[in-house]
């Protein structure tokens, strides 16, 4: 029997690592090479499943935690239009987390396990969301740079070999473009606005530029999970390739907007690629490990929401049981 429910029933089997024959692996890799999508129910290596769950749930957590830094600014938005736009944008982050949890659930992870892993600190999320937001222009800069960088990654992942992840990404990309454009619109406007607005925009760029480069991940030489993920068609480009695309698109636009990029070594090479100076990875890893930044505050807020919402979820469950007369595990 192959009810969808079975996906979750098979989760404990993972730990036991089912026997995988070379023939199975070969057939699997042939399907990927042929551009076929792997769907729930299809055979896949346990490692493929494990890596996907890790990657997709981490991605989902990033969207969910990513609601917080910008969400704080909904109440401060300086015009009715900006408030409306920001509400829609943060709503989309929740939606993207929702689509991604769904994709991970098709691999046998449950929402509950994933949320527990986030709240207990076992699962990671993108450290970019541990940086504080200091001014209204941060909202615009996050849209332009952070979402701009995210889109580069997501566009790549939309072509990945796992069907549900690919579909979530296609949906996300189409919505994320709005995030990017509204941020760019704001910053371009402020860069041409009053002196105070210009100053605010430049200050935001000074703080978000390097984190946006770092969020695309360690240099290829230092990226431990990339090998198997690219072999199985999940990561179709390397971190450094994606970072280069991001640079080439964003540097000229930021300069055109009249802003100064905080990198004295920034230059364009003979091929026309924009090159950045050395990245300070010690800061990046300190933020990833939660030694710097707002990790505790972000998780605290999510934990609070989860705890405060328990009685609501219990009530929904009790109502459903009462209405159906059925019981549920």
């Amino acid at each position: 029997m192959t009810q969808i429910q079975n996906a979750s029933a098979s989760a404990p089997v993972l730990a036991a690592l089912p026997v995988e024959t070379p023939e199975q692996l070969e057939a699997f890799e042939a399907r990927i090479a042929a551009g076929e999508k792997i769907e729930p129910g299809d055979w896949m290596p346990a490692e493929y499943r494990r890596q996907l769950i890790r990657m997709i749930s981490q991605h989902a957590h990033s969207e969910v935690v990513g609601m917080l830094p910008e969400g704080e600014w909904i109440r401060f938005a300086p015009s009715l239009k900006r408030k409306l736009i920001l509400m829609a944008k943060v709503q989309d982050e929740a939606g993207h987390g929702q689509y991604l949890y769904h994709a991970a659930e098709t691999l046998g992870a449950t929402r509950e396990e994933m949320v527990d892993a986030l709240l207990s600190g076992k699962a990671k999320y993108s450290s970019i969301f541990n940086y504080p937001t200091h001014s209204w222009a941060d909202v615009g800069m996050i849209g332009w740079l952070v979402d701009g960088a995210a889109i580069k990654n997501q566009t790549m992942l939309a072509g990945c070999s796992y069907g549900p992840y690919s579909r979530a990404m296609v949906r996300i990309c189409s919505e994320e473009t709005f995030h990017h454009k509204q941020g760019k619109e704001m910053i371009v406007l402020y860069a041409q606005g009053t002196p105070k607005q210009r100053e605010m925009a430049q200050d935001a760029l000074n703080r978000w530029w390097w984190p946006s480069l770092m969020m695309l991940g360690p240099h290829d030489a230092d990226s431990p999970n990339s090998g198997v993920l690219s072999r199985w068609g999940v990561k179709l480009k390397s971190n450094d390739e994606v970072r280069q695309e991001y640079m080439n698109e964003h540097v000229p636009e930021l300069l055109e907007a009249g802003l100064t990029i905080p990198d004295s070594d920034l230059h364009q090479d003979e091929q026309g690629n924009w090159r950045h100076g050395a990245i300070d990875w010690t800061e990046f890893w300190a933020v990833v490990k939660g030694e710097r930044g707002l990790n505790k505050e972000r998780l605290g807020a999510r934990q609070q929401a989860h705890t405060d919402g328990a009685w609501v979820r219990d009530a929904l469950d009790a109502y459903a049981v009462r209405e159906s007369g059925a019981t549920r595990a």
């Binding site: 917080l68 909904i74 109440r75 509400m87 829609a88 943060v90 929401a305 405060d308 919402g309 609501v312």
Partner: peptide
């Protein structure tokens, strides 16, 4: 809108953000 990021269920973050946008649109 103060619920955004803090609702009891992720789906409800989305539902409440719809209501908040609709009301502001009416305003």
């Amino acid at each position: 809108a103060e619920w955004t990021g803090h609702a009891p269920l992720l789906e409800e973050d989305i539902a409440l953000a719809n209501i908040a946008q609709d009301e502001l649109g009416h305003g």
